[in-house]
Nucleic acid binder design. Structure first.
Length: 732
DNA sequence: GATGCCTGCCC
DNA sequence: ATTCTGC
DNA sequence: GCAGAATGGGCAGGCATC
């Protein structure tokens, strides 16, 4: 029915506005080179295979059905009107015209409905090129019709309200969202929980509530500007009574929203858009939009039937956007520059500058030295200790102002006053400005030894005075990105390191260079890794020496090697599965995580060790879900000692081998409780599934004793400079 | 004032 | 953080 | 191999509630 109505509506709207349009003057196809991945043949074969093994749980299918199920009530709820906003809006169409097919006119505010419908289309699609095309079309319309909304559209698409370093938080999570939906729609929390189980997404819950709700008054139309402003209002709400105020604001938004709008408002508030488009794709879409519909361009929209002929232009545009964003990760700047002056303006304004964080280079895990060497090929490389602390990008601008940024561009300057104070003395004479890449590590200055990450996390975070500092830190510098007014990101690591060592001086216990070694002999690397672990590091970072710090080209250009990545070592444990949790998103309909326990033989009880949510394939997830459904019990067994309450308790039957990086004293888990700590148990950092153990009974799982023994072995390594190899025979 | 839940952000 | 998956 | 999604432990800080 809708499919019959849609063309009619479109024709009607088209006639009313006396617009003519040509299908050919604006269609375009993205060049394949943009992603440069699999061949057509492979893609086709894969899609055929998917068809045959298709199950309702497959992501694509789940996405499609979600879209279909909510599109209908959304359409049904609206009446046929002459209003543009009631027109069908489909930016995923190949023949989308950024002006004629938009549902708002030049100079009008961008309707939030248009953005939400764009999200809806994107959510229903799994092909990246299609997703980018859809987003591109929406951005083209915004650039042409309401360019001042572009930054807000970008923020709302990517789920932010301000640059990370401004420290603006919504302070909205599950609880506040749920209460707001209750307030706005009248559904009970219990009912909402049921819907959440079925739909796997609170956004979808909100949409369904709105579509079932009878409204007497036609809701006001939401604009992108208004929604964004409300988010800002929420972020500014604080202190006593703020929760109620936030709920009131969200309630107001939901009251004015159509189902599809409610869906994405809620997803944004929850901090998870999960539509298959995130930062990188949004930047690509912006770049494409800038080429197809440059700012101020009002004439014909350029024909790009043979995309390959313009591939180079697209690639250049994407490079400019990515580079601009990585050097100046601010949506306001990049989007307003683009809207105002196109790509050249982005190039002008988005440049690396001390005081503004740069996106940091990241590393890929590597399974072992052989894999690592293979990946590096003939490239020369250096290995460095991988310190277990917190990434710190330390800036000094030409006025001497020091700023410290976290890995995610948060401003942590006020967290490390002593670091800020003493930093100038580590820079040699003549240094005016710089950006250093470092790891802050908790340091025992008396015993001159590195302390575990968990110690570092206990430091105060806000408004720290030098006198407050109880946990000392040492900075380990490993890279330099900017020096004396010049960007070094195009320089090789070899040369950057030279500059770092040349222009900075170490101070014991305060500022050191990351310990490193330049050997490509596997045995030497293994020794170096052992030494790193003896020295309380996580393992090694391995970096090609002749590569630039160009994260727009390859953000994961470094490799990391940790002992728990190796199959032969690491804390591996056999655990009983005693509970499970309902999955959401792509895990809807399955159990998305599992509660793991060890068996304490003395006390004859199961004690929780950790939850587990990774390491299994989608197929295993299905299997586990089916298995667990047979094991559900109404309440925990008497011999379960567990502070957490899973969605479902299970009879102990399944035994899985899991692995983690470290053991930690836990505030919630109970494994080995009373043995290492009188009231606390032990848990596992970075738990993941390794194998299913069909050969073991739950009582044969590892014990609380085992966990404590492993914890002590690890503590011994951490405390006494014993090589980790010494304990291996005991544990494995 | 103490306690405990929620949120954001480290890993 | 770790891991899996479609492209 | 990229990009994205779904999920882990555990801390401080903020707010609600007792």
């Amino acid at each position: 029915m809708t499919s019959v109505l849609r063309p009619l509506l479109r024709i009607k709207a088209g006639l009313k506005l006396c617009r003519s349009r040509s299908v050919f003057e604006h269609s375009f196809v993205l060049p394949r080179q943009l992603t440069g991945t699999s061949s057509m043949a492979m893609a086709q074969q894969k899609s055929i295979m998917n068809y045959f093994k298709a199950s309702p749980k497959k992501d694509g299918a789940a996405k499609a059905s979600t879209a279909a199920s909510t599109a209908t009530p959304a359409e049904a709820g609206t009446s046929v009107a002459d209003d543009l906003s009631e027109k069908d809006f489909d930016p995923s169409s190949d023949s989308y015209h950024p002006i004629n097919d938009a549902i708002w006119r030049k100079g009008e505010k961008t309707p939030y409905l248009a953005l939400a419908k764009t999200f809806e289309k994107i959510s229903a699609e799994s092909k990246r090129l299609e997703i980018i095309k859809t987003m591109t079309n929406f951005f083209r319309s915004v650039m042409l019709l309401s360019p001042e909304d572009l930054p807000k559209c970008l923020y709302l698409s990517l789920n932010k309200v301000a640059p990370a370093w401004e420290g603006i938080e919504l302070g909205v999570g599950d609880r506040i969202v749920t209460k707001s939906i209750v307030a706005a729609t009248g559904f009970t929390e219990k009912k909402l929980a049921e819907m959440k189980t079925r739909l796997g997404d609170t956004g979808a819950v909100a949409a369904e509530c709105r579509s079932k709700q009878r409204t007497l008054v036609a809701p006001k139309k939401l604009s992108v500007e208004k929604v964004f402003q409300k988010f800002i209002d929420i972020s500014k709400t604080s202190s006593k009574g703020s929760e109620a105020k936030k709920i009131e604001i969200i309630k107001g938004l939901l009251a004015d929203s159509q189902p599809v709008e409610a869906r994405f408002i809620v997803r944004a508030l929850k901090g998870n858009m999960r539509m298959g488009l995130a930062e990188t794709s949004a930047l690509i879409a912006l770049a494409n939009a800038a080429i197809l519909s440059p700012p101020g361009h009002q004439g014909k929209h350029r024909v790009t039937k043979t995309a390959d002929s313009r591939a180079e232009e697209f690639i250049q545009a994407v490079n400019i956007m990515k580079r601009g964003y990585n050097e100046h990760p601010n949506y306001d700047t990049i989007a307003s520059a683009l809207a105002k002056g196109g790509l050249p303006e982005v190039e002008r304004r988005c440049k690396i500058k001390p005081g503004i964080p740069v996106k940091p280079m990241l590393a890929h895990p590597s399974k072992g030295i052989e894999a690592l060497l293979e990946r590096l090929g003939d490239l020369a490389f250096v290995s460095e200790y991988k310190y277990d602390g917190e990434r710190a990008q330390v800036h000094r601008d030409d006025k001497g102002k020091i700023t410290v940024f976290s890995r995610n561009q948060e401003d942590h300057t006020s967290k490390f006053p002593e670091v800020v104070k003493r930093l100038p003395k580590h820079a040699n004479e003549g240094i005016t400005s710089f950006i250093l890449d470092t790891e802050v590590v908790a340091f025992d200055v008396i015993n001159k030894t590195i302390l575990p990450f968990q110690v570092l996390t206990t430091r105060k975070r806000k408004n720290v005075e030098e006198g407050d500092v109880k946990i000392q830190v040492c900075l380990y510098a490993f890279d330099i990105i900017y020096l004396n007014g010049e960007s070094l990101i195009s320089m090789t690591l070899r040369n950057r390191r030279e500059l770092l060592h040349e222009h900075f001086s170490t101070t014991e216990r305060e500022f050191m260079f990351a310990t490193h070694e330049e050997s490509n002999d596997p045995e030497k690397i293994q020794e170096f890794m052992n030494k790193a672990i003896e020295d309380k590091c996580e393992g090694l970072m391995v970096k090609a020496l002749d590569r630039a710090y160009e994260i727009d080209k390859r953000s994961n250009n470094w490799l990391k090697l940790k002992k728990d990545y190796l199959d032969t070592v690491g804390d591996s444990l056999d655990v009983a599965i005693i509970g499970c949790y309902k999955g959401s998103g792509k895990r809807v309909g399955t159990f998305g995580s599992y509660l793991c326990a060890v068996y304490d033989k003395d006390k004859e009880e199961f004690q929780s060790l950790c939850k587990l949510a990774t390491g299994f394939s989608d197929e295993q997830l299905e299997t586990f879900t089916a298995e667990c459904k047979e094991l559900i019990i109404p309440k925990p067994l008497n011999n379960y000692r567990c502070n957490l309450v899973p969605d479902y308790w299970l009879t102990p039957k399944l035994v899985w081998e899991i692995k983690g990086a470290d053991l930690s004293i836990s505030p919630v888990h109970t494994a080995g409780i009373g043995k290492q700590d009188p009231a606390k148990g032990i848990s596992l950092r970075f738990p993941r599934l390794m194998h299913v153990r069909t050969d073991k009974n739950p009582e044969d799982a590892n014990t609380g004793e085992d966990v404590v023994r492993m914890y002590r072995a690890q503590a011994a390594v951490q405390g006494n400079k014993k090589p980790f190899n010494d304990d291996e025979d005991d544990d494995y």
